[in-house]
Write a protein that binds this DNA or RNA. Structure first.
Lengths: 222, 222, 222, 222
DNA sequence: AATGAATGAGTCTTCATTCAT
DNA sequence: GATGAATGAAGACTCATTCAT
């Protein structure tokens, strides 16, 4: 039923088989949701199993332990993110101004608005208990992301669009508010009526705009 | 008060007594540290007890449960934060430009550089398991902080120093990178060699500077 | 039977069929090996299945449970042992001296040197969890074996070859070292470099020799 | 109540404390019994706890895992055995003949007739699952025991009491029947009415006697 | 007030067994 | 008959909490 088979075979492939192939994905999705909602420690394997509509034991057919399940969840969702990151940039024709807006908005759509946004909370919460992750995350996510934005800033500076700002710090100043939006969404934002912002897309647009033009009135500043 | 003062004070009251009065504070400090380091679930009451150099049972003389201990830790540290918030502003004579820099730097010194910076990680991580806090935190910390910065922005706009930017979103764009700095410090930053920034004060200065002047080359500026 | 014979035999019956008939035997062999190696509890049905190159489910087509599999393994291997026991004795022409040596060596070749030697460890280990076997084993193995050796001793005494030693205890003194050799082989001997003896056949020869002539220097002997 | 305190203090030492000191021993005794009875795998920590009249968790206050509990049980009971082994020999004045009888009987009294006799079954059963034990057991028990008996045989040979038999094999021929007696006692012997021997001490006496004098009629053998 | 031995509820994890294919 | 995905009962182990001292 999932992928429609061409024509001839009227769905003869065993349902069991199709299930087996879909299971890891189903389990990872369920796990992401429960992990993000409750945190690693408070997540019971049975919770994940139930959400994926399988029994406790079945989870262990695909992931050897709760820890490995978490790792898989993070790896799975991060790999996507990274891949998507590189896609967009590189051959953008227009102004760096436009590129920055586009990049931010795309990131928000593909990460911030999906369940993947919960990963950051997980990372914040669990890195210290999974030291191997610190390394992994630093190498696979932080560093590539940083390089991406540095390249973008350098492009702007080279083209005379941007001031010669300190690269690393500016990269963080750019990305941090967007990460906080994700964190807020899965913590305070999920509980109290408090919303960090009425309209995240508008927030991001404004953030990028501020980063580009600043608060000060243009003429005769300072 | 902890280290015994030389002679003057008629320090006849038994060390035990002084100890007893200091206990709750000592326990809260120890708990903050362990909670921040390991997360709520991974924190053993014994860890806290050991760090405070008391026995497991003693913790229960002061806090009825692990949950209450966490609540006390958060409440205790939040009160500090709140108190510190209001102090500085209101009657600042100089430019809003200067005020913003001063405010940011002061906050960093009093929060970011102290153990209190760990409280944000705790909140992010645990609000969903202690929903009562969401409300409390929103009302006691987020809202006052937001008002403070909004007032500051309005001051700048009124004085013709700032553009008429959207207030709420700009407030968040201002504060979020600084919160992320705190979170980073207690998560990724505590594990991998990765540092968000070489020099947090410089980062903050740069961040505020960016918020004020933006990335774009503005003819005649600077 | 497993490897297909060339041409002659009208081997039209499907390989499947031949397989099917060999299965129980193959499974019992695999099970004996794994049970002896790991013990009953540590043996996974999957291990047995894998060793017999079938799937987990297949084992259950032949044996209804792990317990029944163990019972079958013991029963199967015991029957062999018993049958082999009676064969040799009865009409031996020579001296009881020679007969004892011959009997011991034959037993070692047919039991000690084969997989059957592992059955003793299984019995020792598991009888208390399968009490029904105690009876079975006592009646079918211990008692016949005991009778055999008692008859042998009586033959020796009657012929004036042996002293009038206590029959039962001597029977045990004769057989116990050989059983220990089997047990050792499948326990300590299988792990550490420790070997009970460099040369089991020489050990047995020496053991029988000791049983016949003793340690003491007997003037005029040998 | 256990050790009577001298005079003055009328049992003021806290019962709790005394308990703590007695616990490991109590637990080891309980564990030995249950392990021997059911085997390692079939033993539940709760069984051990119940037999020692404590809760599940208490066992873990003293032994970090079931495996370590087994190791401790074996180590504890073996150390005694070894120590006792060395005690007896060395300065025996009489004939090697007498010494051998005495040694065998003492061993039987101190090991064979106590719960410690169950250890051998445990070892046989579990060495392959605890490879580290093979080494330990070989070094701490097998080797010292072997040396002890070799020394005894050499003494007999040197004094002209014994024939020049092969040492290693003879050592095993001496000890194996006694080990089998222990194994039998805790396996078949504990289930069926079957007894290896009516009177173990008589069996051992006979065994040693056979080892010394053999089956053959003294004069004009072969 | 302080201690730390003891408890036992709660989870992860394993694996014998089942059954749809 | 054969398969192997799925199940869920069972047991090791942890740790918040209690309470006798």
């Amino acid at each position: 039923m999932p992928t429609s088979t061409p024509v001839a075979t009227p769905d003869t492939e065993p349902a069991r088989k199709r299930r087996k192939e879909a299971r890891p994905q189903e389990l990872l999705d369920a796990a992401l949701q429960v992990f993000v909602e409750k945190g690693f420690a408070a997540t019971k394997m049975e919770d994940v199993a139930n959400l994926a509509s399988v029994s406790k034991g079945t989870v262990y057919l695909y992931f050897p332990s709760k820890e490995e399940l978490l790792k898989a969840v993070i790896r799975h969702n991060l790999s996507l993110t990274i891949a998507q990151g590189g896609d967009l940039v590189a051959q953008f024709p227009g102004s760096t101004h436009e590129l920055l807006h586009l990049l931010a908005m795309t990131w928000w759509e593909r990460v911030g608005e999906t369940q993947a946004s919960g990963i950051f909370k997980l990372i914040i919460t669990e890195v210290r208990n999974f030291p191997e992750f610190a390394e992994f995350y630093a190498a696979e996510v932080i560093e590539p992301g940083r390089q991406l934005l540095k390249a973008l800033l350098q492009r702007g500076i080279a083209r005379g669009e941007f001031r010669a700002v300190p690269l690393d710090d500016t990269v963080h100043a750019l990305i941090f508010p967007m990460l906080m939006l994700c964190l807020h969404k899965h913590s305070v934002g999920a509980c109290s009526g408090d919303v960090a912002t009425q309209d995240p897309r508008a927030f991001i647009h404004n953030h990028i705009d501020l980063m580009l033009h600043g608060l000060c009135c243009q003429p005769g500043q300072h």
